[in-house]
Design a protein around this nucleic acid. Sequence first.
DNA 1: ATGAAAGCGCTAACAT
DNA 2: ATGTTAGCGCTTTCAT
Lengths: 330, 330
Amino acid sequence: MATILDVAREAGVGVGTVSRVINGRERVAPATRARVLEVIDRLAYAPNQSARSLSMGRTDAICVLVPFLTSASVNARLQGVVEAFRSSGREVTLRVADTPEQRDQAIAAIVGGSKPAGLIVISLPLSEITIAELRAAEVSTVAIDVALPGVPSVTVDDVAGGKLATKYLLDRGHRAIGFIGDDDEQGLGFRSSTNRRLGYLQAMADLGLGARPEYIKTGPFGREVAHRLTRELLSLENRPTAIFAASDTQAFGVLESVAAQGLAVPEDVSVVGFDDVELAPYVGLTSVRQPLFESGKLGAAALLDLLDGAEVDDVPLSLTIVERSTVSDR
Amino acid sequence: MATILDVAREAGVGVGTVSRVINGRERVAPATRARVLEVIDRLAYAPNQSARSLSMGRTDAICVLVPFLTSASVNARLQGVVEAFRSSGREVTLRVADTPEQRDQAIAAIVGGSKPAGLIVISLPLSEITIAELRAAEVSTVAIDVALPGVPSVTVDDVAGGKLATKYLLDRGHRAIGFIGDDDEQGLGFRSSTNRRLGYLQAMADLGLGARPEYIKTGPFGREVAHRLTRELLSLENRPTAIFAASDTQAFGVLESVAAQGLAVPEDVSVVGFDDVELAPYVGLTSVRQPLFESGKLGAAALLDLLDGAEVDDVPLSLTIVERSTVSDR
DNA sequence: ATGAAAGCGCTAACAT
DNA sequence: ATGTTAGCGCTTTCAT
């Protein structure tokens, strides 16, 4: 491996000059620059990242922070992120934090340790304090699927999404609509389920339909829990004719549960999910689609822009409902 | 951020001693060690990784190399890997190489640049030369879902798997069994489809059934292609009564195609897949199951052992057939 | 515009 | 057993 000194010697210049041409800093005579570049190419010189990091006190890498890898949506977003960074030649490191402790630990490692050039946060809410730490450490950050104050975010409007799904059901004549989602207070503070429920409530209210507490069931995220909650919903005296699940994962649990009760979808109960994950078409799930992979690509692109010193705005993504076969008219 | 010098001063020792206790090297007096440890704790000292890397000429990180992220099986394995490294505190970097060029570039960056402490290769065949390079650079490597000569590998026996699937069909009375898989010569040189076909052929031969070239269709990996190949299979004069797909992804294509031809599964044609990905249960696909997530965890554990200086053997994983509803007796 | 030199924080070889 | 010191390869003043 050639070092910067080799290049300098070979080009008959000082290491400072080589460093300058590498980093495109200040002005260096065109002729000198050309000569150095030629040598760099000839020696196949590549800067030692560790030395660079040590000297600059920060890394060149990009860190992607996710709450978990097992979620289809987080996964799809991650794919988009990685795809977008591929050509940048930057190293991307992955951190998963599925508890508040792990989250804090990850942040501590980032601001106090590796100091990556950039950070992409997927779906994980961060406190204002944490965001301030990140800013202080000069870690350029962009958020995907979560709005972080003062951080460029790539998001959809979950309230509007909840409204969209509910209105869709309402338009088809359903009035007794159940909601299945996450508990409000989780350790990590996810907000999307809560927001989607808000949209559901608004859509109902828009039609003068009051909230029916017994139609709203929440619990820890997951298919199994949704399964159980659905059973509760279906054993109600006036069971709902339709169920809006805050995510496809939960919708799958709903679907299973309905079948397990000996009921048919969509004849007995209609179901709409949220996310439109890869699996959705396979089970014919009608769902609110949000661009998952795309959100990753856009977030990564935004970060690259940020690193280039550009101004970056929030990126709002739009929601559409994908009609399949889990909803029938009422 | 405290530095090693701060710790040394505070503990009244030299930096060398601090370095020794950090790295557990040589012998240092228990009393001194205790004192240093106390100061480290009090100052919340954490070694600067860049400085460490520069000095040692290598990184502390683990690199995970995958051919793509979009495959459900690669994804599941990756999850296992990440999960297993979580507690190790090591940084894990992700590299995806979906062309030979990218693969070579990734290897070059690894051996010539970042020099991670360890490398996990998922599903990606590597040449002997590449492996030698890795060894020369002292990058401890373990392979998952691909056998690399001289490196500990976590694998299943694909030939046996192909045999298992085919025998399952044979046992149920099928004799006209089609095979859908990948082309043999792909850029990246994946072998599993080929091996599974070998198993298919062996199982047939074991019953004195010769190979029927027209029953064997291969093409680029993917659901759509499998869909098309299935159409060809079904339009044969004596169309097969069963199809063994080299992967679940391809099996899904088969399923779609059968339905598109107006035929029923399993009444008209039985289907068995391979991998048993998350989606499989949803469509009731009978499939050869291999432990995906588990393979990742085991591979990561093996690498950690290797890094600890332990001897590590190949880890063979076993295959089972998961019976669902895409196969009927003949 | 460019060379020289002082660190960045750590490891390891060398003394003692 | 432990202190001292020379790098590791790069960036960045500071001169010139």
